[in-house]
Design a protein around this nucleic acid. Structure first.
Lengths: 142, 142
DNA sequence: CGATATTAGTACGTATACGTACTAATTCCG
DNA sequence: CGGAATTAGTACGTATACGTACTAATATCG
């Protein structure tokens, strides 16, 4: 077997690839056209109405350029409303539209189910351990 | 905190992002211009001289289109030689050039060091557990 | 042997993902 | 208050990442 298959960096990429693939397949099977990141954005905007893109990009851990692209696509699909912020004309406030809210509500139960499927090769106990380890690993070193 | 921050799918993306970021930073600091995937391709081609792109794409778990792009860039940079396979004129055999071999040799120690840094927030014992869990998680369910 | 199916690779399109450079707006501070 | 620094967002470029459709070459099977 190739050496790289033992590298954490490689394994992380592989699992991410698997995770994205399962997400895309399952949501499409359920009749939705939504990526993982688009879901994350809808979810965070729902929790934080009138959030601006800079704060959003921090909450979803994504750079502002990528967020701009994603939001732009969601705006085109009329899932998000983007308005110039009155108190700071550089910023744009984001809010879900009615159909954005409806889509989020409908897709949420599927996404939750998908989370278990992503770790389906692990036992419940292993899943718990894995999530707690990866949560710690994601924290910037102190 | 946002709900998504507890989803395995989100945590996996976040860690992957961190992993890629560390890889890129450290290799650039060391004077190399190489992505994670380009390293993986060089590494596997080194271990399997005259491999074709189809087999390579399986060994690095990447679809053939992406591999075609990556190999094409590595060929342009003269790190990989690509020749039409005589026994099967559809296929292309891949071999590292002298500079490809040299680059791989020089960058390898850095990449190995980077693997530890990716999991720097975990203790040695946690790292061991994490690697064994993620290895299991990457296996397709049976 | 020859029609059909499969396979290797490429072309094209879409969506991340992010660095750098840019504009416009706001803040900071002397 | 006004110039300098900072910030929000966009434009542009590059590199994954992969689906679909295509061509060319090989394999399969009646």
């Amino acid at each position: 077997m190739a050496i790289i298959h033992q590298f954490p960096g490689y394994l992380i990429r592989r699992l991410h690839q698997l995770s994205v693939s399962i997400f895309t397949q399952r949501t499409q099977e359920a009749g939705f056209d939504l990526t993982q990141l688009q879901f994350a954005v809808l979810s965070v905007v729902d929790e934080n109405p009138e959030i601006d893109q800079a704060k959003l990009s921090i909450l979803v851990d994504m750079d502002k350029v990528t967020i701009g692209d994603v939001v732009s696509r969601l705006e085109t699909r009329q899932l998000i409303r983007r308005l110039i912020k009155t108190s700071d004309r550089r910023a744009r406030t984001l809010t879900l539209t009615k159909s954005g809210k409806a889509l989020l509500r409908d897709v949420q139960p599927h996404v939750i189910k998908i989370q278990d499927e992503i770790l389906r090769s692990l036992s419940p106990e292993e899943r718990f351990n894995f999530v707690s380890l990866i949560t710690k690993a994601c924290r910037p070193s102190d």
